[in-house]
Design a protein around this nucleic acid. Structure first.
Lengths: 218, 218
DNA sequence: TTATATTTTTAGCCTTCCCTAAAAAAATAT
DNA sequence: ATATTTTTTTAGGGAAGGCTAAAAATATAA
């Protein structure tokens, strides 16, 4: 049996390990989980004992095959629940996270299989992140930053990088949501700001904003 | 903050306190929760400290207003999730309990309000038990035992008394489900067995079975 | 009513997961 | 290459929730 706390640690290591496949540091985990490094060390020993991570003192950790499967499954559940909350229960982008954080720990294979079917097998969550399949494989999404899109090109919003509540609120205010069609009207070389068209109305956005929005080309 | 464990104790006291409004005994709670009496005593002290129960050593406990509200809310969540599992995710009667037992502890007012609306404000769970409203009031259901129904009378199944997996399986096997129309064809005075008609096919059931099925008259 | 049985509580201990403070190892700077 | 800083681990402790065994209170029987 894997406890809720253990699942959270595995998930954190999973996310931190994604970019660059080097071992994850104790401090990085502590920061991500807003806990103390000493607590992390203790948990790493327990996870190593259970063969869910490879851990050598002072050398950081990485997930074993077994650990990775569990972590991917937690992420899968988290993202499926997010889809459920947005599509079926009228939650908005910035409200789903805390609840999904609780729901991801519910244990029932049938529940998650049926939920997946009920949602018609979604491949992305409301933030545009891919949903791992039953085996834990997640298809590489080919999203790029809006800032990388050339003038006159059409694309659609598939996600955000910074999913803080304040940024999500900005997007809502400007009618940018998952799936929203965006046309790049003009790119200003000087400050890298952009003019974009959304539903026929034009909007100017800064480099910082454009660097936080993921899109896919149409 | 009320912990998951505290919620479970409050719920147990709530259920045990229903029939007969005398105080609930330590042993009864221990049995219901499959734990030890000593653990119960310890928890009762904690709950009394938080003013969720009235507790006097050796005299049993009862819920305070505050405790009752929390307990009713847990029951409300449990039963709403059961409806969700059966109506939307194709769970059968005997599969919902364990999962609902986990889901009932998810904390989010919006979640439960939206779920309620999504399910179109059900008043009964799949076992025919009433769902408390937001204030914790639950309408008295007027269900009676099938054994109390007179000859030639039509009724429909609204619930069961013993919801053990084995009994639920018996019902499934004989095509008896929530909402199933039942006609009492004949009552045998000798052993109180009954002949009943379900979807035009006749079935003989013992007194024990008839005493476990709740119905409402048509 | 006194003895016996049952119920409930107390005392002491365990595990999980968190913490602080100090020690040890590794990384960085002079 | 040594000194300093940063990171990681160890040591020791706390709260929550469970356990067993023994003591105390209550209930039941003779």
């Amino acid at each position: 049996m894997v406890t809720q706390s253990e699942e959270n640690y595995l998930k954190a290591i999973y996310h931190l390990g994604k970019q660059g496949s080097i071992a994850v540091s104790t401090n990085a985990i502590a920061e991500k989980m807003t806990t103390k490094a000493s607590s992390v060390t203790e948990m790493l020993k327990k996870l190593a004992e259970k063969e869910l991570v490879d851990y050598k003192k002072y050398q950081g950790v990485s997930l074993t095959k077994k650990g990775k499967t569990i972590a991917a499954n937690v992420v899968r559940k988290h993202r499926l629940w997010e889809v459920f909350l947005v599509e079926k229960l009228k939650f908005s982008w910035d409200e789903v996270h805390d609840v999904a954080e609780q729901l991801e720990h519910i244990k029932s294979q049938k529940l998650i299989d049926e939920l997946d079917a009920f949602l018609e097998f979604p491949t992305q969550d409301p933030h545009g992140d891919p949903i791992p399949d039953r085996e834990g494989n997640l298809q590489k999404s080919q999203k790029i930053f809006l800032s990388q899109v050339n003038q006159s090109v059409n694309c659609s919003c598939v996600g955000v990088k910074d999913s803080s509540a304040s940024f999500l609120k900005y997007l809502d205010k400007n009618s940018i949501a998952l799936g929203t069609a965006i046309q790049v009207v003009n790119k200003e070389p000087f400050d890298e700001s952009m003019n974009i068209k959304i539903n026929d109305s034009e909007l100017t956005i800064s480099k910082e904003i454009a660097n936080n929005i993921y899109v896919k080309l149409n």
